[in-house]
Computed example of a mutant assay.
Amino acid sequence: MNPFISLEGKPALVTSGTRGAGAATVKLFRELGAQVLTSARSKPEDLPAGMFVGVDLTTPEGCAKLAQAVRERLGGVDIIVHMLGGSSAPAGGYEALTDKEWRKELDLNLMPAIRLDRELVPAMTAHGSGVVIHVTSIQRVMPLPEATIGYAAAKAALSSYSKSLSKLVSPKGVRVVRVSPGWIATEGSVHFAERLAEQQGVSVETSTKMIMDSLGGIPIGRPASTDEVASLIAFVASDRAGSITGTEYVIDGGTVPTV
Score class of each variant (00 low, 15 high):
Arg222Asn: 10
Gly182Phe: 01
Ala234Asn: 09
Met142Cys: 14
Pro181Lys: 01
Val177Ala: 08
Pro223Ser: 15
Pro219Cys: 03
Thr148Val: 12
Ile133Tyr: 12
Ser129Asp: 09
Ser231Glu: 11
Ala224Tyr: 07
Phe235Cys: 01
Ser137Gln: 12
Ala126Cys: 00
Phe192Arg: 15
Ala185Ser: 14
Asp227Arg: 12
Arg178Tyr: 01
Ala157Glu: 08
Val135Met: 13
Val202Tyr: 05
Ser225Lys: 12
Gly217Ile: 02
Ile149Lys: 06
Ala152Trp: 00
Ala126Pro: 03
Val229Pro: 01
Ile211His: 05
Ser159Phe: 02
Pro143Thr: 14
Ala126His: 07
Ala126Thr: 03
Val236His: 03
Gly216Lys: 04
Val135Ala: 12
Glu194Met: 10
Glu205Tyr: 02
Val236Trp: 00
Gly150Arg: 11
Glu228Pro: 08
Ser207Gly: 02
Lys155Arg: 11
Val176Trp: 04
Trp183His: 10
Ala185Thr: 00
Ser166Ala: 15
Thr226Val: 12
Val177Gln: 05
Glu146Gln: 15
Ala185Glu: 14
Gly150Asn: 12
Ser180Ala: 14
Asp227Thr: 06
Val132Asn: 06
Gly182Thr: 00
Pro171Asp: 04
Leu144Val: 10
Met142Trp: 14
Gly216Leu: 07
Arg140Ala: 09
Val141Gly: 11
Ala126Lys: 13
Arg178Ser: 04
Leu196Gly: 07
Gly188Cys: 08
Lys163Met: 00
Lys163Ala: 03
Gly150Ile: 06
Val177Glu: 02
Val236Cys: 09
Pro181Phe: 01
Lys155Ile: 01
Val131Ser: 15
Val131Phe: 01
Arg140Ser: 08
Val202Ile: 13
Gln200Phe: 11
Phe192Thr: 11
Lys167Glu: 04
Ala230Ser: 03
Val131Arg: 10
Glu194Tyr: 02
Ser231Asp: 07
Val135Phe: 05
Val229Tyr: 03
Gly221Asn: 07
Ala126Arg: 13
Thr136Ala: 15
Leu144Phe: 12
Ala234Val: 01
Lys163Leu: 05
Lys155Phe: 08
Arg140Asp: 05
Val179Gln: 04
Lys155Tyr: 00
Pro181Ala: 03
Leu215Trp: 13
Leu144Gly: 11
